[in-house]
Design a protein around this nucleic acid. Structure first.
Lengths: 339, 339
DNA sequence: AATTGACTTGAATACGTATTCTTACATGCT
DNA sequence: AGCATGTAAGAATACGTATTCAAGTCAATT
């Protein structure tokens, strides 16, 4: 049983060497003679020594810790991303400290202080409303920062998103090609770039064909709001024959309203298309046609860019867009000959 | 714009006081005169000073960080718990560092080293297979450790679970009272206490009424395995009229197989009961009757016990069981007069 | 008025490591 | 042999804070 705290000093004494020598053995990239190394490792193993990351960070100025700010985890897209993020960062030697931000402006200051006093080397913001206050503040502090799945007007900010405008555009083309004439959009929250860009791309796609949407409602990325929106749409005189929903999470709620409450057939009466392609979209209960956001590639891009910025290897901030395919399932009518 | 690194020394110089005085201002529970405090705070604000947690932790020996080990996040129960855990711990002043353990024995050593070298004050293991190697190792190291939603044979280990045996027992009573005679169980992974206890409670419940299960299959907490188990059950001569599934996550897959693939009516042909009561269980697509695991109360218990242990306030390890109600929805036939 | 005591502040030190600077030593060269 | 060169390990120091200890101030007590 190892004593409670074994320090490099203890190991040094036991091995008959100096503390710096112990440090060199445990710091990659340092030259130590074969004999010394063996002695030190033997002593270290015997005592159960483990370098103290805190002390190491204090002197190197690198905590090897990334702060992850996240507002909610209901949407499984973020859960999947979190999982990959953690694994990918660990591969690169970084750990994740997680911060839930209640999305209240009031919390912002508290979270920022928390993050920075923990000396995180970089910050990833996911699913958090782009509070200018927060981002500006962090930029001022000079901590590498990157938005995940959120864009931002400020070109100083790095971000990784899917090609939301293009995705929305393609959905419009797809639905038009499917012969739909009364197309509605239950959008993602229009206060977030993600929701906004998808909606604008979608509108542009319709416009390019000389069409207009039957209706546009903000679903606020909320199941409840989206369900309510669906009910409202079908309480009108003219009802949609297709709905593009701003993300899968809301689309599931919409499907349930259409089939369960309104007794409609999907895609017989209405086609539904989502956005994200979370794992559940493939479940037999939903079989949702949706635009895939490739979480793994997005995570890869976030990690690369962030670490480049941390290690000074980046040429300034970058806005990265990752394109994903439209995944065809049975919730929407597929046009003849559509590839 | 604050300079890149503002130290207590800088603040002291600016305020015309000593560094310890600055420290005292920022360390609760220290007496500082009114005048000093104001001078220091003014200077600190002007410079944008923020105490360095690393340095603080190094000297106090408290990192105020909890290591959370988690194997996967597919099951939304853990996501909900993670969210609450993070918020609850933050209220108590702690932060979470997250570690994904691929559940491989090989990773264990790596994770443990990582955790301990980060000087975490305590560890929460969630959804991780009870590798004796790992837990024993951590116990040896003397770090407060608590299992979330997993029990363990070792009484030295603290844990918080729902009352799994009792829950399984109640499901048996419920299904028997509903008049079911051919009851099967697709269990949670029998290598985990969670899966095992629920199964044993269920068996005991049947036995108490002189009954035996029609079949028992290990669903391994996996959608795929559970779905396959359901298919197998209905390929037999005698098919179940009720299935107790070891958790909601698997139950959803089972429901899909029963309704979608086999064209059975639930609960007309088969009653299905799950375990967890995740948010999705209430979705119209599933309407799953299930035993609730009260995530909020479980989290509360975990945090209390863990912090008690960290702060030496605990009377040894504790195994806490939290009871949850059976939530009646439409996936199972409700016996006459059942409360 | 002198002494005790409480209270506030500064000086010095410790936490555990990485790094710079020195020194010792072996090696290769002319 | 004598000198330059390179290498490896130890001594000293730094990182930014909290804490112990000593010193100083001032009010209160006798």
């Amino acid at each position: 049983m190892p004593s409670l705290k074994v320090t490099a000093q203890d190991v040094a004494r036991a091995a008959g060497v100096s503390q710096p020598t112990v440090s060199r053995v445990f710091t990659p990239g340092n030259k130590v003679s074969k004999g010394m190394e063996e002695k030190v490792r033997a002593a270290a193993d015997a005592l159960g020594y483990r370098p103290n990351t805190l002390a190491r960070s204090l002197i190197t100025g690198q905590s090897m810790t990334i702060g992850l700010i996240v507002a909610y985890l209901d949407n499984p897209f973020y859960t999947e991303a979190l999982e990959r993020l953690s694994l990918t960062l660990k591969e690169r030697g970084y750990n994740i400290m997680i911060f839930m931000a209640a999305n209240q402006a009031a919390d912002v200051d508290h979270v920022v202080n928390d993050l920075l006093s923990h000396q995180v080397d970089g910050i990833i913001m996911a699913s958090v409303s782009t509070s200018s206050a927060l981002t500006e503040r962090l930029l001022d502090e000079g901590v590498p920062l990157i938005l995940f799945n959120r864009g931002h007007a400020n070109a100083q900010l790095s971000s990784v998103t899917s090609a939301n405008f293009d995705g929305g555009h393609r959905v419009a083309e797809f639905l038009l090609a499917g012969g739909h004439g009364r197309i509605a959009h239950i959008s993602g929250w229009q206060g977030a770039s993600t929701g906004l860009d998808r909606a604008e791309g979608f509108m542009a796609g319709l416009k390019a064909a000389g069409q207009k949407p039957l209706a546009m409602v903000d679903g606020l990325f909320s199941r409840k709001a989206a369900a309510e929106a669906a009910r409202t749409l079908f309480a009108q005189d003219t009802t949609p024959d297709a709905i593009f929903v701003g993300n899968d999470h809301m689309a599931f709620a919409v499907l349930e309203v259409l089939r369960g409450e309104l007794g409609l057939s999907v895609p017989g009466d209405v086609s539904v298309v989502g956005y994200d392609d979370v794992a559940m979209a493939a479940w037999p209960s939903f079989e949702l046609t949706t635009v895939r956001q490739p979480a793994n590639r997005m995570v890869e891009a976030v990690v690369n860019q962030l670490i480049d910025q941390i290690e000074g290897r980046a040429n300034g901030p970058k806005q990265i867009e990752i394109n994903g395919p439209l995944i065809l399932r049975s919730s929407a009518h597929v046009p003849e000959g559509w590839s």
